[in-house]
Write a protein that binds this DNA or RNA. Structure first.
Lengths: 202, 202, 202, 202
DNA sequence: AATGAATGAGTTTTCATTCAT
DNA sequence: CATGAATGAAAACTCATTCAT
């Protein structure tokens, strides 16, 4: 029934991003999104199953494109250490480029109901797989410790990136995310400890 | 006006935890919480300003107690490395001890409205301060790298712990959180890199 | 946002009159009005801002139409004495024609909250202006005493008409209001005193 | 059950006047009146049947005293014309003396529910009887027209006084009620018409 | 395909009154 | 007599979704 493509499909998703970013999740009514997209309320239901579907599709479209790009870029980088660096950089670039999208995916959609959260979680799995791949590469290459637990490590990387972006938004984007890429990368690879810095820096 | 103490105050908070954990945030009506607490609907408003206040108080009581305990424990540990270890351990213990509370604070309350989220955020600030303290201690002691950015490091620690707990709940608590303390601590202190492990372990 | 015109707009107002007249102001729930108007509860909010708006609009529509008619009729009458007669007659005719409306505007809506009362007061100002006009005309014509205080006189006229109608309703409309027009008119013009009746009647 | 006398009985009534005058009828909760009267909520129910009873008693006590005084004063005046003058004067004096009481009896209590309004109506009957008496006296004396309809005339007098006081309160008591006694009395006795003023004034 | 008017289910909060102490 | 903690019924309003045009 739902069309899922076309000019209006995209217009509705873009309108949803703008409306949610401006008014917040709890004030983003279907009618407001429709007005912003310059379509009738009912038209939204020709392109989406229901409101949840709009939100999940929004996340899927925006995040799906991003993850595909990350996958491509990862393939073009040789070492896991560089892949990790690139990942952090892409993650921050992606969200810093579009503040509204950052607010929507990082803050507002997390207030959504279980159905939407479930949809979001499924989309994120692909991203977590990419992270797992980097960790596994590094272990295979021998640049990462052989005793790493991939899932624990993945949670550190994702959790840290996520918390960093959320915090940046909560502070009204008043500094540059990309300025933190180096520090984070170093933290991931070398940790907080003051051991062997000379070697590490070498 | 709102009493904020007493037997029923606590009964209502405990009931709220149980109801939200069982039915989810969006199905935790005031009347359901009242019934669970074995008080009349109106009684809730003798102890709390409104429903939001119940939720914020819930978080405040549970998390406040926990943070106070963490603060005490930190004072009794000498090295920052051990403090960090203790922190991870306490964090996981706290949430592993009470699965329902974990679900409520970690998953359900994050769907709440801006007012509640604001209240939660303020309470969490104290916890972030504790983490900052550990990082600063470590730098002063010379066991943590002198070029650490405290705020970035804090986000890594908190983001990782948070993501780890969320993931554990989403997987239906099917493994033990406490089993991951060592691995996480090592990850924080030494990082993912395979440099100088022998020295580091020495 | 609220439409304020159309078939359903009128149906809702008519339904409100019937429901309030039958059940009283304090038992005229929105859902009851909606059912009487044969629309859904929510439909009321497509035509009115809120319940108060329904009540104020009711008064405005009914009283507004009446006042416009009074204004027209006044323009077609020459002498102030005849204008006054016509006013009393129109006032009583208006309320005697529709007993339910009389009950609603005269009794029930006066129990309403400050917001509604304020709205009603503003609408009534136009009516008071008409009365002022008559008094001023009469003074200009020389048929009314030159030392009349317009505002005091207006209050006598309005207060008397109002009390008369209220009393008539409280006595279950068991006599005819229009039968009192002459007596009231004479009372206004000549007063209670027994001076010069012969001349006056001449 | 209800005591209906005593220090606290009076304290509660006085408190009710103050609370209703300050906060308005719709915000005059029993608990607020109790607090103002410095008694417990439950104590009110030792002296009154229910909240309605408090309001009716308030009106009864305050208005009853006033009406008794009016009755006494009327007995001491000979002519109906002077009685009428005295009545207007007493009416205005009574309400001008206590602004809070005026607001409560004239504005706020009229928003009350049917039960209270019924109680008030019954108390007012005595007052209307006094007015009737004056009109009848005047007719008997021959100073009022013999064709007066007592009930119509009574409504003119009461309606006018009532409207005058209400209007004065709505205008924030910004002029003196007593300044209008002469004008009103003249209006009642001689009417608005400009006939025979010279004789009338003679 | 597109419209947008109409639907109606669902929930927080207040406050008069009671009654155990 | 007095207290005041506890009760629980009751109602306005929102908004996702439908469907006749």
């Amino acid at each position: 029934m739902a069309k899922r493509t076309g000019e209006k499909y995209e217009a509705i998703i873009e309108a949803a991003v703008r409306v949610i970013a401006e008014y917040g999740y709890h004030n983003a009514q279907v009618s407001k999104i429709a007005r912003e997209a310059k379509v009738a309320d009912g038209t939204i239901y020709l392109y989406f199953e229901n409101k949840d579907d709009v939100l999940i599709s929004l996340f899927s479209e925006k995040m799906g494109t991003f993850i595909s790009r990350v996958e491509e870029e990862m393939a073009q980088v040789n070492s896991a250490v560089d892949q990790l660096y690139k990942l952090i950089r892409l993650h921050f670039e992606h969200l810093e480029r579009d503040h509204k999208l950052a607010i929507v995916t990082q803050i507002e959609l997390r207030q959504s109901n279980p159905e939407v959260r479930k949809g979001i979680g499924e989309i994120l799995k692909r991203y977590l797989d990419v992270i797992d791949g980097i960790v596994e590469n590094g272990m295979r290459e021998g640049v990462f410790r052989p005793d790493l637990d991939v899932r624990i490590t993945r949670k550190m990387i994702f959790g840290t990136l996520d918390e960093t972006v959320t915090s940046w938004i909560m502070n009204d984007h008043k500094y540059r995310l990309l300025d933190q890429v180096d520090a984070l990368h170093r933290l991931f690879v070398y940790g907080m400890g003051n051991y062997h810095q000379m070697d590490a820096d070498a």
